Simulated assay, not measured.
Amino acid sequence: MHAYDESIADRLRAVLDGMDAERVALNYDRDDVVADSLSHGLFLRLRESLPDREFVPSGDLVRRLRGAKSETEFERIRRAAEATEELLQTAAATWTPETTEREFVDFLHERMRERGLDSAWAWDYCPTVHMGDREVGHTLPADHTVDEGDLLHVDFGVRREGYAADIQRLWVRGGASEGLRAAFRDVRAAIDAGHGALAAGAVGHEVDTAARAELTDRGWPAFEHAFGHQVGRAAHDVHESSALVSQSERAAF
Rank of each mutant, 00 (worst) to 15 (best):
Q168L: 11
A165I: 05
A164Q: 06
V172D: 00
R185T: 15
R169Y: 13
A164R: 02
G175D: 10
V172I: 05
G175E: 09
I167W: 09
G162M: 09
G175Q: 08
A183G: 06
D166Q: 08
V158N: 03
R173K: 06
G179T: 10
A176D: 04
S177R: 00
G174V: 02
S177M: 01
F184G: 06
A176V: 05
A183D: 13
V187C: 12
V187F: 11
F184C: 12
V187S: 15
A182Y: 08
V172Q: 01
Q168A: 14
G157R: 01
V187D: 13
A165V: 07
Y163N: 02
A182T: 15
D186K: 14
S177A: 04
A165F: 07
E161A: 09
E161T: 01
Q168H: 15
L180D: 08
G174Q: 01
D186L: 14
G162C: 01
D166R: 03
G175S: 11
Q168C: 15
A182C: 07
D186F: 09
G179A: 13
S177D: 07
R159H: 05
R159D: 08
F184R: 11
R169M: 13
R160K: 12
G179F: 08
R169F: 10
R159P: 01
V158D: 06
E161G: 01
I167E: 09
R185P: 10
S177P: 00
R169S: 14
E161F: 06
A164C: 15
G157C: 05
R159S: 09
R173H: 06
R181M: 12
E178C: 01
A164K: 01
G162Y: 06
A182W: 12
A176F: 01
G179C: 06
G162T: 05
D186S: 12
G162S: 04
A165C: 05
L170F: 14
A176R: 02
A183V: 09
R173Y: 06
L180V: 12
A164V: 07
G157D: 06
E178W: 02
I167V: 15
A176I: 04
V172E: 03
Q168T: 15
F184M: 11
Y163A: 04
G162N: 04
G175W: 03
D166S: 12
L180Y: 06
D186R: 14
F184E: 14
A183F: 07
D166V: 09
V187E: 11
D186E: 14
G162H: 04
R169P: 03
R160M: 09
I167N: 05
R160F: 11
V187P: 03
E161L: 07
G179N: 13
I167S: 04
R181D: 13
I167M: 13
R181I: 11
R181A: 12
S177G: 01
F184H: 14
R160T: 08
A183Q: 08
R181K: 12
A165N: 02
G162K: 02
L180E: 09
F184D: 13
R159Y: 06
D166F: 13
R173E: 03
G157P: 01
A176P: 00
L170Y: 11
R159I: 08
A165P: 02
D186M: 13
R169K: 11
A164Y: 05
R185H: 15
E178H: 02
A182S: 14
L170S: 08
A165R: 02
R185M: 14
G179L: 10
G175H: 04
G175A: 12
L170G: 00
W171I: 04
A183P: 00
R160Q: 11
V158G: 03
F184T: 10
A183E: 15
R181C: 08
